[in-house]
Amino acid sequence: MSPKTRMIEVRQNVLKQNDVVARALRERFHEAGVFVVSLVSSPGAGKTALLEKTLTLLRQQFRVAALVGDLATENDAARLARSQAPVKQIITGTVCHLEAAMVQSALEGWNLDELDFLFIENVGNLVCPSSYDLGEDLRLVLMSVTEGEDKPLKYPTIFNSADVALIAKIDLAAAVEFNAVVANRNIQAVRPEMTVLDVSAKSGEGVEKFLDFLRSRRNAARAVAASQRAKAFAAPD
């Protein structure tokens, strides 16, 4: 008697575990009133330099902190710590991206109520981080002018998963003959209507505009949260 094969229908998201943790993180962040921003880019695009600058400047007005992911070394955490903000390194070992559970365990012992902004710097990688929700409010993708204008076309998935594109090292644009028109066209091709901001952590160009953008997005998120609370209060059920 030969065994019979039959088909069982299931419907299970492979990344279910990550999504469950990410959703719980997002709820925790919203309850604590902390605005969470993640950064993704290729290695060397300038995430850490921009983040150091951002932490240093935002710290004057807000309570800020950062988590930074790398396969090895605590070098980036050491750089970011120069901003005097609380910083924690996540060492992923061989894993090429951050997952929600890594963020969750890195936050153990932190009181999120004491924060206004939390930044999460992902591992330098334009492929794998796109699949993993970290519970962030805003995902920034950086491309530096030295990488060429076609990065968005080569890595459409990550650009599509991000909310904002930053063109970094803009102070070097002329030296490397960066074509901003082509770069913008490529970004818009893979993510129509995406906000694009030029920044240079080194010269400071565009940094104030970037910080304004972060402040306004945080305010908008807080306004939404407040109106939801008001609605819940008016109609408890």
Partner: peptide
């Protein structure tokens, strides 16, 4: 940019004995 399908990573069936 309004994606309605294409991000799936779903197990939808098992062939079993």
């Amino acid at each position: 940019g309004e994606v309605v399908q294409g991000k799936e990573l779903l197990v939808v069936g098992l062939e079993v004995e």
